[in-house]
Nucleic acid binder design. Structure first.
Length: 589
RNA sequence: GGCCCGGUAGUUCAGUUGGUUAGAACGCUAGCCUGUCACGCUAGAGGCCGAGGGUUCGAGUCCCUUCCGGGUCGCCA
């Protein structure tokens, strides 16, 4: 750069700068060479400005300008001049002015990039990730990264103003049972022993409450060695929050304020408080999901009572065996969907273990359906009544175990909404799901496992059920849901050592075993534990939703591909035999 | 591990019932061009059709295997 100093950013220049001499630095976005006249769009993170090189009044540096190619890094000295009215470019914010070049330095050349640096560059994600530094030059990606920064900044400011301390917790910690597969880190000093990267700072934030910190938060990286999805990465970021001397209402209300603040400050969207709430049970009954998308209807209706006595064995048996029959009214779809489309819906629910999908099309000249012959006239009119069927509607039913019915119809509901275009992507439907079950029975393990985590407090009125009917116990656990995506979850924790021991007991851990694994925590709980609870958001998902993207890879600077590798650095990689030896590790070929 | 979609030029894609020398657009290179902003015009370079095997007189195209990318189910306290 020599003695040149940048005076302005490219994208902020406007008619107010006319006449000023400026020094700009940035990348060559586009070059238009007209012979004796060269236009170069110079780009930095603020935007693009047009620089003009005129052979008449450029010195020998005009020749230099001729050699400039895409993505060359330039320093330009020039005068800001007003463009003639007929040459104004209304498409860019700096379009009323341009830079008349007085001097040029090529700070660095560039190889021809593998794809062009512009939005809507329809290039495969593999190529984008391999050259992520180029991908991140695109304005669209910069917007994503900037919004992420703003959200984090907003969260920090808000929580600071509410008396929360930001405290870091260890990345090298111990593996705990339950939950996701751990990423393990071998210990050199302790042969055969391993650290685990945290799945979340859960235990440490509880210990911070024990330590009297009162209010804690952290923008915490978390690691889970499970298969990837559009909204799941092996390392991701949580906004992790914990508070002392609180109950459910305290946690929900401060989190509502936080969410409203984030929406207002980053998107200028007003969220009306308090947020709507659904209990877990109601969410399942009405939407077949614990993270319902409430931007559209298509709610589930229970028709088990009608199906119980009917002649259709599939329906009757499902109810008899403790399951249910439920249906969705696809409004106006009787004629809209062809037989082939209905068949594709049948195949769709089979992905979710439903054995079939029964349907009744309510048409002007009567009902069309493969199943109505099994029902009496009365039963049919009750079915139609229950689903509020009108002419033109298509009624869809699944009969099975409750979990299958809920999942199949919950997913079918989303699929119908997609096909029918019912989803308004301008809407932000935030809500709380409360009263999650504390435990669920795991057939494989032959025992109850924690739905949330083993430190979650049962609801006071359900504690007695721990002995008699653990599956019925509701927890002081809650999720925040936005447009059908789980944004975060939290709970009030158990703070009484006896209750915690009881919990381990129900989970099938003997006292000895529980002590072996969580002894440090149970020991800690002996020394005066404040009632406490908290919440954790998936930051990546939050950013994704606020940007209307459908992959968190678009809001993470350097994400991993579906196979958990990084094409840029080629991680994970093999390591030197010496490194393995130091770690006392032998690779099993 | 299962299922679905995809893999052809640097990039995004087309490629008919299997049939001459595999195309287009953008990008790239060179030349011309003083008001472009998707600059224009002319010329040109660029291909292991993901890989391997098979069927066939003949395979980008059909079959099998395999690798890679994406989505999804399982999994994700």
């Amino acid at each position: 750069m020599g003695d040149w100093k940048r005076t302005h950013m490219c994208g902020i220049l406007n008619t107010g700068h006319i006449g000023e001499e400026v020094t700009l630095m940035g990348w060559t976005h586009k070059r238009r060479d007209l012979g004796g006249l060269i236009f170069i769009d110079l780009r930095d993170r603020t935007g693009v400005v047009q620089v003009v090189f005129d052979e008449q009044n450029c010195g020998d540096f005009f020749k230099k300008a001729e050699t400039v190619r895409s993505e060359y890094v330039l320093a330009v000295k020039g005068i800001i001049v007003k463009r003639d009215p007929e040459t104004v470019n209304p498409k860019i914010p700096t379009g009323e002015i341009e830079v008349s070049a007085k001097q040029l330095k090529i700070l660095s050349a560039s190889a021809t990039p593998p794809f062009s640096i512009e939005d809507n560059t329809n290039v495969s994600e593999l190529v984008r990730l391999k050259y992520r530094y180029l991908d991140l030059r695109r304005a669209e990606m910069q917007r994503n990264i900037i919004l992420r920064h703003k959200i984090v900044k907003c969260v920090r400011d808000f929580l600071d103003s509410k008396g929360f301390y930001e405290i870091e917790t260890p990345m090298l910690t111990r593996s705990t049972p339950e939950g996701a597969r751990d990423y393990l880190v071998p210990s050199r000093i302790h042969p055969g022993r391993f650290y685990a990267l945290p799945q979340s700072p859960q235990i440490f934030k509880q210990l911070l409450m024990l330590s009297g910190c009162d209010r804690y938060f952290q923008i915490a990286r978390c690691f889970r060695d499970e298969d990837l999805r559009a909204d799941r990465q092996p390392e991701f970021t949580q906004i992790d929050i914990e508070m002392s001397f609180v109950d459910v209402e305290d946690v929900l209300s401060i989190n509502e304020l936080l969410l409203a603040e984030v929406f207002k400050k980053t998107l200028d969207v007003d969220i009306s408080l308090p947020l709507p709430r659904l209990t877990y049970r109601e969410a399942m009954e009405r939407y077949g999901s614990d993270k319902p998308d409430t931007r559209f209807g298509l709610e589930l209706k229970d028709v088990s009572d009608i199906a119980a006595g009917c002649g259709f064995k599939v329906f009757a048996n499902a109810v008899e065996q403790g399951g249910s029959v439920r249906g969705i009214n696809a409004k106006g779809c009787a004629l809209k969907f062809s037989r082939r489309e209905i068949d594709s819906l049948v195949d769709f629910v089979k992905n979710y273990d439903a054995k079939g999908l029964a349907w009744i099309a309510v048409e002007e000249d009567g009902l069309k359906s493969p199943i109505t012959k099994f029902f009496t006239q009365e039963q049919i009119s009750s079915l139609l009544g229950r689903l509020q069927a009108e002419t033109g509607d298509l009624l869809l039913f699944v009969a099975d175990r409750n979990d299958v019915v809920f999942q199949a119809l919950g997913q079918l509901r989303l699929e119908l909404a997609r096909r029918l275009g019912l989803i308004n992507d301008k809407k932000y439907n935030l809500l709380w799901i409360t009263e999650f079950p504390l435990l669920e029975y795991d057939d494989e393990e032959q025992r109850f496992v924690a739905v949330h985590h083993p430190f979650t407090s049962p609801m006071d009125e359900d504690i007695e059920l721990l002995d008699t009917d653990p599956g019925k116990v509701r927890a002081k656990a809650y999720d925040a849901v936005l447009n059908g995506v789980e944004l975060g979850s939290g709970s009030i924790r158990i703070h009484a050592a006896e209750l915690q021991e009881k919990m381990f007991d129900v989970l099938g851990f003997s006292y000895e075993k529980a002590y072996e694994r969580f002894g440090f925590l149970m020991e800690a709980f002996k020394y005066g534990t404040p009632p406490h609870g908290g919440f954790a958001y998936g930051l990546d998902r939050l950013v994704m939703l606020l940007l209307g993207r459908d992959s968190i890879r678009d809001v993470i600077a350097f994400p991993k591909m579906q196979n958990a590798s990084d094409p840029l650095t080629d991680a994970p990689s093999e390591v030197e035999p010496k490194q393995l030896k130091e770690l006392h590790i032998r690779v099993d070929e």
